[in-house]
Amino acid sequence: MRELLSMVFIGIGLGFDLLGCLGLVRFPDVYNRLQAATKCVTFGTCSILFGTFLILGFTSAGIKCLLALVFIVLTSPTASHALARASHKAGVRLWERSVCDEYSNSSK
């Protein structure tokens, strides 16, 4: 039963990781790509780690899976925030069909 549940988690995780990578290729500009890269890949990787934890239980490796999960949730959004801010400061334009850009209005 536990094995089955963990396989389900790992499967979901792999699916979301795949979709995240597809989004990285398909989306038009830096900011949209960051959205796909952050959300899907964070959730997918967390799901894989949780599935691995379910298989291993409270062993040495299982606990490390849980710790890695916490650190990914903390660091991944921070990294994407830094990337988005840096590329905006460096003058990377938004996609031409974007609706509005309040950030460049305010910083001028």
Partner: peptide, 26 residues
């Protein structure tokens, strides 16, 4: 919320017409 976000973005990724309407708001 995180789970909902993932479903939402995943649908946008595999949707053939890419229903994007992006922008930076305050």
């Amino acid at each position: 919320e995180c789970f909902k976000a993932n479903i939402d973005v995943a649908i946008r990724v595999i949707h053939p017409y890419k229903p994007l309407n992006p922008g930076i708001i305050k």
